[in-house]
């Protein structure tokens, strides 16, 4: 973990206390058997193909042009989007704009270790992945030579962080009235052997990254999809999977991404409706105030005329 030399850091060889708990020493098979119980349900009671319920909200950060908050039980993600600003260190003229994406974990976000303030390689990789996923949606040609900032802050991480970050970024961009081609949604899947875990938690993801001794499939796949245009914006796989498994999972992921879309749609439409009602209310209030002022003016005018007479 890289150190931030501007802060006071703890002693370098300090180690998390969790390393000395019984949980840490569990073997692969023990962890695997814990994930699914006898009825075929997962640790948190979900079925294998059930995604976690998602809470979606826009206008979360008042200081940002557009923002969103997505919560899927243990995974909580905030995204803010800002207006186009000049590209720093730009040397040559370009006909398209840039997207600057930064994903950051809160230091207390992950359960296994404390995240450092200096971005490590995982955060940098997530930022690149986010940029790849959101890039095809934004109309970059409308802000040539400028960049739009997208900042994602993961408050708590319990699996599917990248998928949540991509969906949050898509919603925040729409909330910021950045011209986009389409709304992007994302979802992820963990595969252990022949079991497919949709919307995996951190434990399931962690186990899916470890390979068992035999040659079985294991891995995590994340997909980002443009819903109106029905195109895949980003597809990321890690682990070791054979081709039939990948093709099957591609279908499953497409359906999952499609299931997320109505929530985003409903949120956006809701905000437009609220905006319309707000505008109407403000204009009515404005008219009422103007009428009052006019009355006062007439009153004063008549009183002046009376006094001067």
């Amino acid at each position: 973990m890289p150190l931030d030399y501007k802060r006071f850091n703890g002693p370098e060889d300090s180690v998390s206390y969790k390393r000395f708990t019984a949980d840490y020493l569990k073997s692969y098979d023990e962890l695997h058997s814990e994930l699914i119980d006898e009825t075929g349900h997962r640790k948190d009671g979900r079925a294998m193909d059930e995604a976690r319920p998602m809470y979606v909200r826009g206008n979360f950060v008042s200081q940002a042009k557009g923002s969103s908050y997505i919560e899927m039980r243990g995974t909580k993600v905030v995204c803010s989007v800002f207006d186009p600003r000049e590209i720093v260190h730009q040397n040559e003229f370009s006909t398209v704009g840039l997207l600057f994406c930064e994903v950051k974990f809160a230091p207390f976000a992950c359960k296994r270790q404390r995240q450092s303030h200096v971005p490590d390689s995982e955060e940098k990789a997530l930022s690149v992945a986010l940029r790849k996923a959101v890039g095809p949606t934004v109309c970059c040609q409308l802000f040539a030579n400028f960049q739009i900032d997208i900042f994602v802050y993961i408050i708590e991480s319990d699996g599917s962080c990248l998928a949540a970050a991509i969906t949050a970024a898509g919603l925040a961009l729409a909330n910021a009235a950045v011209p986009m081609f389409d709304v992007v949604t994302a979802s992820s899947v963990a595969i252990i052997g022949d079991k497919i875990f949709i919307d995996p938690t951190e434990d399931e993801e962690h186990l899916a990254m470890i390979s068992p001794d035999t040659n079985t499939n294991h891995g995590v796949i994340t997909m980002a999809r443009l819903n109106g245009l029905m195109q895949i914006a980003d597809f990321r796989q890690i682990g070791s999977l054979d081709i039939e498994c990948i093709l099957k999972v591609t279908d499953i992921l497409e359906q999952e991404c499609q299931k997320v879309f109505p929530k985003i749609q409903k949120t956006l439409v809701g905000y437009v409706k609220n905006g319309i009602m707000e505008q109407k209310r403000l204009s009515e209030e404005g008219k009422a105030r103007e009428a009052k002022l006019k009355d006062k003016m007439l009153e004063w005018r008549s009183s002046i005329v009376n006094n001067s007479v």
């Binding site: 042009k65 409308l142 950045v178 011209p179 437009v272």
Partner: peptide, 29 residues
């Protein structure tokens, strides 16, 4: 549509011009 907002239609030389009016300032330059 490229923004989230209200659809506005205008007649312009027998061609209907469609535009989307966003409730907050769009991020354009």
């Amino acid at each position: 549509a490229a923004l989230s907002g209200i659809l506005k239609t205008e007649e312009d030389n027998k061609v209907i011009k469609l535009s989307v009016v966003s409730l907050i300032t769009p991020s354009i330059l």
